[in-house]
């Protein structure tokens, strides 16, 4: 039984019917009391100390039937309507609050999902950047190593060339010195091709293999 069913005001037919029955009962009760229709039974009850009068009872029933419908129509129905209206308004308010709460929960979940998605995306991007940087680092390192190796080889080649050049210069210088020394010793010019050949041969025998 819902509250709205209680809220219903009595129908016009039931009100009119009840008022007619009630009025008939009141009039009937009055007539019974006036005519003393149950006088014998009432007297015997009075003698037993029971003050019962059927006419009054029937009239009271009639009054009650009339008043029941009138009170229901004019006072109880508006009261039920007001209370039910207030209840439904409260229910609506609570319903709205509940739907708002659900909406907020949904929004919160969406935001949290979005935040987690953003975090995941940022993490992925960072990882990709780190990977890219590491690849770049590897490339750079390899390039640098390769270049260093090239420079090193070039430097070794230059060193070798310089060393060879220095050795040639040194040999020439030593040869010159030897010739000058020999010239001084021998006081004659030994700067001829044969002497140079001899010195070279000599130097070849004493030259340290490198």
């Amino acid at each position: 039984m819902s509250q709205s069913e209680v809220n219903k005001a009595p129908s016009a037919g039931s009100i009119v019917g009840m008022i007619i029955i009630g009025a008939a009962a009141v009039v009937g009760g009055a007539i019974i009391d006036q005519q003393k229709m149950f006088h014998g039974m009432e007297d015997s009850l009075h003698h037993m100390g029971i003050p019962l009068e059927i006419g009054k009872t029937i009239a009271t029933i009639g009054v009650f039937l009339i008043m029941f419908k009138i009170l229901h129509l004019f006072f109880f129905a508006p009261l039920f309507e007001a209370i039910n209206g207030r209840t439904s308004e409260l229910e609506n308010t609570f319903g709205e609050a509940e739907s708002l709460r659900n909406e907020m929960t949904q929004l919160k979940a969406d935001y949290e999902k979005r935040i987690s998605d953003t975090e995941a995306s940022a993490r992925e991007q960072i990882q990709a950047q780190i990977k890219e940087a590491q690849d770049l680092k590897k490339d750079l390192m390899a390039d640098a190593q390769r270049k260093a190796e090239e420079y090193k080889q070039q430097a070794i080649a230059e060193i070798d060339a310089e060393k060879r050049k220095a050795l040639v210069d040194l040999r020439i210088h030593v040869t010159n010195l030897s010739l000058q020394a020999t010239e001084k010793i021998l006081s004659e010019n030994v700067d001829n091709d044969r002497n140079r050949k001899l010195i070279d041969e000599f130097l070849s025998t004493v030259e340290v293999k490198n």
Binding site: A30, G49, P51, E53, A59, T60, M67, L71, F75
Partner: peptide, 25 residues
């Protein structure tokens, strides 16, 4: 006690009762 209220007396007190009830409501 056996006599109780008369018909009119009872109706009077019922009317008073109803007046209070209807007034309050």
């Amino acid at each position: 006690a056996a006599h109780g209220l008369s018909f009119a007396g009872l109706m009077f007190y019922i009317a008073v009762t109803l007046l209070v009830v209807v007034g309050f409501l």
